[in-house]
Amino acid sequence: MLKMNNISKLYQTEMVQTHALRDFNLHVDEGEFIAVTGPSGSGKTTFLNIAGMLEPFSSGEYLLDGIDVGKLNDNQRADCRNQKIGFIFQGFNLIPDLNLYENIEVPLRYRGIKASERKRRIEQCLEQVGLASRAKHLPQQLSGGQQQRVAIARALAGEPRFLLADEPTGNLDSLMARQVMELLEQINRDGATIIMVTHDPELARRAPRNIQVVDGQLADFTLYQGAQNLKNVAGA
C-alpha cells in the first residue's frame, strides 16, 4: 500500500548539506498501525512530510496505492493528499475563524463533494469523535483534547486510505492523550491504516508495529507485539 524504496532527502544551503533521510526503505500494508519513534532531529517529521506528500524527496521511489508519487505534479499531489491521506497534527491546526463544522468541511470542499454529502459525513464524523453537539463552536471554545478530536474528525471525513498523525498527543495531558489514542485505535480497528510519529514510548508501545528513525535511516524495525512476546519468553 505504501512503499518507500531508497528514499533520500537532502537539504542544501550554501554552506551545508544535510541528509534528513538516506536510503529509507519502508513497506506498509493496509490496516497497519505503525508508531514512528526516534530522537529529535532524526528525520521523523521529514519522513512524515514525504509520506504525506507535503514535501518532495531528493531521490528514491515512493509508491502510494500504486501511484508513483515522484511523477506527480503539484496539483496531482494536492489531489492525492486530499483523497488518500488524512492528517492529524500536533498543534491540531484547526482554522480559528471557522467553527467545527466548517473546519471539517475544508478538505471536503477541496474535493468538490456536494453540500448534502458533506453534511452527512461531517455529522457522522463529529458523532464518531463525540462532539456532535458542538458543531457550531469555534475551536478556541474547546479543550485541547476536544480540538484534537475535531482534527481527527476532519482527517476521517475524507474517508482516507491513510491517517498520518504527527505527535497527536504531544500537546495534551495524559488523560486527554489516552482518550485520543483510544480513538485512533478504534479507527484502526475499523480498518484505517495509521502512521503515527511520537516521542512517547508509552504510546508507541500501544501500536502493533514500531519503527525507529535514527540519523535519517530506519534503525530498528520491530513488530512490537512479537518483540514483547520474545521478551516475555526470555524473562520466563
Partner: peptide, 12 residues
C-alpha cells in the same frame, strides 16, 4: 493556516 489548507488538499 495556508499550509494546513494545502496539506488538506488545496491546490495553489
Amino acid at each position: 493556516q495556508i499550509g494546513t489548507r494545502r496539506a488538506l488538499g488545496a491546490r495553489k
